[in-house]
């Protein structure tokens, strides 16, 4: 067991993947000489050379599509799109090619591609660099969407994602890179199940990615106040592990969903819909959610804080659900 940062954990996973399979290569903007915008890929160029740690021009559509082609051609590319914000430029290739090829070809062509991208707000980088569009990608049949939220998961989820024969998108919340956690030598996580991060009995707090530390902080505050909250980390956003969500909600009978995406049409909305569809009679209170305010994420620190889910808001939502 080692303590390492989320960034180091992801780098370890990338290094293991590159070392373990000659078909694996990494491609993206400034992943090589620059060392990666978030320094995740630092040192890999020296270790694996420019063919396998390949700097690309600023052509998201082009190099994501090239990743798809390389996957079709027998490679196992890991394409880094610097952030989810820029992935919008590659949306056509992700949605119209990667996600559809297997189906359109009647099962003849799979696209074993991994796309990594940073997501989320919280560093005052303003409206165009603070998006959370995990829900968009999680709505598309044909791709899988992961959101590792701990160092252990960051290390563990890449290998099964690469082993998957179909496209997988990994969202790395930018606020998580500096967080630290214990990482065991053996792999713990899979890419199918959600994880209960903190068991509890009174309310199920369902969340993922960058909101997990906030939810855990809220649960600590609530515990001090006598509220025993369970915190569920989805980890896999498509396909959702509905069984684990429902088990938690049936146990606690109340649920609050925390999601950094905008409220309207959010992943939180989808989770609430599933709970209502399948656990309506188990509920003891209306569901609640804590999402980002419906505003482009502002630059000013106090406004950005106000726009995003925060522990205080999660505590308030839990208390309201409990009628406190």
């Amino acid at each position: 067991m080692t303590t390492m940062s989320y960034r180091e954990a992801m780098r370890t996973a990338l290094r293991e993947a590159l070392a373990g399979d000659p078909r694996v290569f990494l491609m993206g903007e400034d992943v090589g000489r620059y060392g990666g915008t978030y320094a995740v890929t630092k040192g890999l160029l020296e270790e694996f050379g420019p063919e396998r740690v390949r700097d690309t021009p600023l052509s998201e559509l082009g190099f994501v599509g090239a990743g798809i082609g390389a996957a079709l051609g027998g490679m196992r590319p890991i394409v880094e799109v610097m952030t989810v914000n820029f992935s919008l430029l590659a949306l056509d290739q992700i949605v119209n090619t990667a996600a559809l090829y297997r189906h359109m070809s009647g099962g003849q062509f799979s696209v074993p591609l991994v796309i990594r991208m940073a997501t989320g707000a919280g560093r005052q980088i303003a409206a165009q660099h603070s998006h959370s569009f995990e829900n968009w990608y999680a709505s598309i049949p044909g791709i899988k969407v992961l959101a590792p939220a701990t160092a252990q998961d960051a290390r563990d989820m890449l290998a099964p994602a690469l082993a998957d024969p179909d496209p997988v998108i990994i969202f790395e919340h930018a606020q998580l890179y500096n967080t630290e956690g214990e990482v065991t030598a053996e792999r713990q996580a899979d890419i199918r199940t959600a994880a209960v991060r903190r068991p509890g009995t009174m309310v199920s707090v369902v969340t993922y990615g960058g909101s997990l530390p906030k939810a855990l902080a809220a649960a600590d505050q609530l515990a001090a106040d006598g509220v025993d909250a369970e915190v569920l980390d989805l980890r896999v956003l498509r396909p959702l592990d509905t069984a684990t969500i429902l088990a938690s909600v049936r146990k606690c009978r109340r649920a609050v969903v925390v999601d950094e995406g905008w409220r309207t049409g959010s992943l939180a909305a989808e989770i609430m819909a599933r709970i209502v569809e399948q656990a309506f009679y188990d509920l003891d209170a209306p569901l609640a959610r804590v999402c980002s305010a419906e505003v482009p994420i502002p630059y000013a620190r106090h406004l950005e804080d106000a726009a995003l889910p925060q522990p205080a808001g999660i505590v308030a939502a839990v208390n309201a659900v409990l009628g406190r």
């Binding site: 599509g65 090239a66 798809i68 082609g69 390389a70 079709l72 090619t97 090829y101």
Partner: peptide, 27 residues
Amino acid sequence: FDAGVRLYGGNAIVGGGLPVAVGLALA
């Protein structure tokens, strides 16, 4: 599509097949 003759579609988004071709060549 036909894997047997290496025909990678049949792309109905104009220009959509071009990046894929680049990737196939890269592979």
